[in-house]
Design a protein around this nucleic acid. Structure first.
Lengths: 233, 233
DNA sequence: TGTTGTACGCTTACATCGTAAGCTTTGTCA
DNA sequence: TGACAAAGCTTACGATGTAAGCGTACAACA
């Protein structure tokens, strides 16, 4: 139509970095399912197809976004006492995922890790090894902690409420719809625990985390990994 | 085109149950992203739109599928010693999710639980309460175990290999592509642990699980929930 | 200064998806 | 036999990801 459009208000050129940044911003607001190539283009003052000059396809875009998020996780200074370090890392992950809830399910499920991801993992393993963890115990610790951390985050993300008060209100609403005599235990837990003032599901995070850290601490202290004997297939 | 098609080989009528069953079968094979209303219809010898007589929309379909999966989880007989019961439940969940990998992320993230889901949760809570867990400790146990179980399943599902041998082969391939001097710890763990014969990531499951169960056992035994003091917001 | 190669952005197009609206067939009972 | 409701079908629309190919502006060189 317009013969010679000066192509976008010259907001500078596009680049993979700018595309990723914009994509993360969009996902942070509307969730990952509202992130479409067209909207992303529009947000950058560009047509959808132009994005493909900087990103192979949508999967590649999402991989890039996820790797960026990994980069946001604080890594404790090398040499930090391991338990403190692992605790801080766990908390940092939870904070990062609170900023980018859409990333929760992706962190563990993307198959092509980027440099941010690899660096993060390497640092964590290095820290544990440096603290005297055997190789198998390091693997155990890594697996157990990450399963827990991301599993918790996944659960937390899907809660339909944010504050304790909202929780109580919603819980009441849900309970009211259930037959009074069904699910008695669920009801008890809800009324006597979830609906109490001051309840916040987020507090559960550190309880489980400390359970795992306690167990790992015991395992390192006995200087050996009791369960390392792997059954030979 | 064909004037009077005898509508499907009269495979009997459709029903919500038949739709759900077929949908689960399709998802088990091609994954949830390959499940479309048209394919599901075709699989049942029916047009896509006919499904909407038995299912409100695709979300409702997925909710129904997820609730079915919850129903497949073995619940230990009431009265079973709690630790055994929780261990068996965890293992059963892992088996069920191995059959239905697509369900892994959904189990924790659907907001409208069906009867299968509610019954499952009620039974678990009841079992713990019956074993002497206080209400807050029950909440802790439930949260910690489920976070871990589903987090582990999520991780496991996304692994691009199934057997130990495949793992070793793939690990070698990936390592070869990385700069030799980068990520030394990741490399060590891979070479000295992951690539060893007999390695199977699945074995990690029970290690972390037992860490949590040990901790919970200690907590019940002292007859009180040490961390229950909730900070008042 | 003029020429040209190329990286970047645009236009058009298509297959696939969920599903709204309304029509037709079929099975049941009076 | 006729009427009605339930079940299934047809058609259509607005997303969505992305393939293919076009136009252009700018940097490097003549």
């Amino acid at each position: 139509m317009t013969p010679t459009k000066p192509a976008a208000p010259a907001r500078g050129r596009l680049s993979r970095e700018r595309v990723l940044t914009a994509a993360i911003t969009l996902a942070d607001h509307g969730g990952i399912e509202s992130l479409t190539m067209r909207k992303l283009g529009a947000h950058l003052g560009v047509e959808a197809m132009s994005l493909y000059k900087h990103v192979a396809n949508k999967d590649d875009l999402v991989d890039g976004m996820t790797d960026r998020v990994f980069g946001e996780i604080d890594l404790p200074a090398p040499g930090t006492e391991w338990r403190t370090a692992m605790r801080q890392r766990a908390i940092s992950i939870r904070q990062v995922l609170a900023r980018h809830p859409w990333a929760t399910a992706l962190m563990q499920s993307r198959t092509s890790p980027g440099p941010g991801t690899l660096h993060h993992h390497d640092a964590v393993i290095g820290l544990l090894r440096g603290a005297g963890f055997s190789v198998p115990l390091t693997a155990h610790a890594f697996s157990a902690l990450d399963s827990y951390i991301y599993g918790f985050a996944l659960q937390e993300k899907s809660l339909p409420f944010e504050t304790g008060d909202e929780t109580a209100a919603l819980a009441q609403l849900i309970l009211a719809q259930l037959p009074a005599d069904q699910y008695p235990h669920l009801r008890e837990l809800t009324v006597e625990h979830v609906m109490q003032p001051g309840y916040d599901y987020g507090h559960e995070f550190e309880y489980g985390l400390d359970l795992l850290l306690d167990g790992l601490e015991r395992a390192v202290q006995q200087g050996k990994d009791v369960k390392s004997a792997r059954p030979r297939r």
